[in-house]
Write a protein that binds this DNA or RNA. Structure first.
Lengths: 249, 249
DNA sequence: ATCACACTCCCATTCAATGGGAATCGCATT
DNA sequence: AATGCGATTCCCATTGAATGGGAGTGTGAT
């Protein structure tokens, strides 16, 4: 069954890119025999591979297939030049995230030596309510998703994380109105996250662009640059133009 | 069954990153009903996704998982700075390929406007016997694989492609001895491919680095630069050091 | 209005995945 | 050497889940 295989893939995370069969079985909550059989088969197909120590890793085929996952690729390609410029000016961390499921998935991240602490990784995830990029994406997400998040418990990562649903709802309205999310110390006491929406074709919000800077200084200064950068990316993605679905007759 | 799902993934190629359900069913040779059911399930898991027109694409989850496929990632990361330097000097195309199955899989490729014609793509594949990178990888591959290739038919891409097994065997010996493969017009009449091995930990050949240049000029000039670049990459990968498997006591 | 194409749904059949446990392997410690 | 632990593979009777042909629905083009 397929969900079995997906559970196996899900056993890998950025901190554990190589696992032993037994570990996979434990993490995926699958019987060892089944795990073994499936891993063998996945290896045969190249979706997984075993290294010298027989540890299991994600296979090359997966990478090859991922190169056809254009939505993300287009976005990264359009964004990179702009992000590099912004990063050169700010000098801490610049990151680009998209909404996936009920989390932010970061598709690109630039950093500098000496930058303030930042737990984000490329292909890493953060909860929507706790990160600046998450707030931006949630604020522009369908009401249905917002409701779902608002009725769930909101785990705190620091004392400053938003954990009260009413407060979150108010913040989302503010983010929509200001066009910018500001999260001093929500994830780490020493860091401030700032994020703005990136609008693609049809002016829909397709991603969030953010900085992580120290939370002592006046981080607000940065929002202007962030907004200009997001606009640049958006233009490259066709913002302002009509939706692609159908060229008008 | 898993091979069903893999067949579905295999229906996507660099030229067709978005397919309709029926097309997938045709390409994968699977009954439409089965294809539909499986695509739905794969979409639910994020391995596939549907765009506005309900076309099916590879999903973000696939990309996310691929980020943990470190072998390729390490290699690209180590190689990129060197490749950029080499590319700046030569100005046509620079590419990096690994052996996967019975083909070369290109993991990185730099090009320039005005470069000579080059059919390689990132995450694209070429047969081992026809490309310079393929010859390098095959020349250093286990005898078992060489035999398998030598007993298969060798399809020609141009009149200059090597199609005779004896000729191929001789060429492989030459590549091993010279440390360099040279393929004028083997893939396209106007282009010459040159490639050298990249040696990683334990001096095993882990990749092939190549240029594609016009085949009229003295392409040989370029082999020096190519070899130096490959050495640089190799050093970054730990060439010269003992194999990682076991530190000597 | 009609056609062509893309897709979804249904359901009886059947075949292939399942997983507990025993056997094996390989490494490390005593 | 001997022992032990953890990882892995193998086996096989059971069962339940995937299968796919074809009918039915929807959408867009002529």
């Amino acid at each position: 069954m397929l969900s079995r295989a997906v559970r196996i893939f899900g056993a890998f995370d950025p901190e554990n890119p190589a696992l032993t069969l037994t570990e996979i079985s434990r993490r995926a909550c699958l019987p060892l025999a089944t795990t073994g059989r499936m891993v063998d088969e996945l290896v045969r197909h190249g979706l997984l591979q075993r290294d010298a120590r027989r540890y299991v890793r994600i296979g090359v085929r997966m990478w090859e297939l991922a190169q056809r996952a254009s939505p993300t690729l287009d976005l990264r390609e359009a964004a990179m030049p702009f992000m590099e410029d912004a990063q050169a000016v700010v000098g801490h961390s610049t990151q680009l995230g998209v909404l996936d499921g009920e989390e932010v998935l970061f598709v690109e991240r630039l950093s500098a030596p000496g930058a303030v602490v930042n737990i984000t990784k490329i292909a890493g995830r953060l909860p929507l309510h706790a990160s600046s990029a998450g707030l931006v994406l949630l604020a522009h997400a369908p009401a249905e998703l917002q409701d779902r998040i608002l009725t769930r418990p909101l785990p705190a990562m620091t004392p400053d994380t938003i954990t009260d649903p009413a407060m979150l709802r108010a913040t989302l309205a503010e983010v929509r109105q200001r066009g910018c999310a500001f999260c001093p110390g929500h994830i780490h006491p020493d860091a401030t996250g700032i994020a703005v929406p990136v609008r693609g074709a049809g002016d829909r919000v397709v991603a969030a662009l953010g900085f992580v800077v120290p939370n002592d200084e006046q981080a607000w200064w940065r929002t202007g640059l962030l907004q200009a950068t997001a606009r640049g990316i958006g233009r490259r993605l066709g913002a302002g133009a009509a939706t692609v679905t159908r060229p008008s007759p």
